[in-house]
Amino acid sequence: MDAPGHEVPPLHPLIVACTDGPLLVRGDVELVAADGEPIERTRKVVALCRCGASTIKPYCDGTHKLTGFTTGPEH
């Protein structure tokens, strides 16, 4: 049963566009490479790099903080 005003049921895929940072991915989402091979995922919540500078792509490694990456007012 859904509680009134409940925003997001748990495990529903949810992607948070973090200001000046990665895309935070929660829930049941399959991550695959271009060839369809699954990408190793060892945690429930992952951060996907969107600055392009990570050394562990597709995951974020915090490098966006060194490069001055900004997402701007539109996220």
């Binding site: 973090c18 940072g21 990665p22 919540v45 992952v46 050394t55 562990i56 995951y59 490694d61 915090g62």
Partner: peptide, 14 residues
């Protein structure tokens, strides 16, 4: 910790 804390810092901040 390179991977995990790049996730944790976003959760911890917001």
């Amino acid at each position: 910790h390179v991977e995990a804390d790049s996730v944790h810092e976003q959760i911890a901040g917001r």
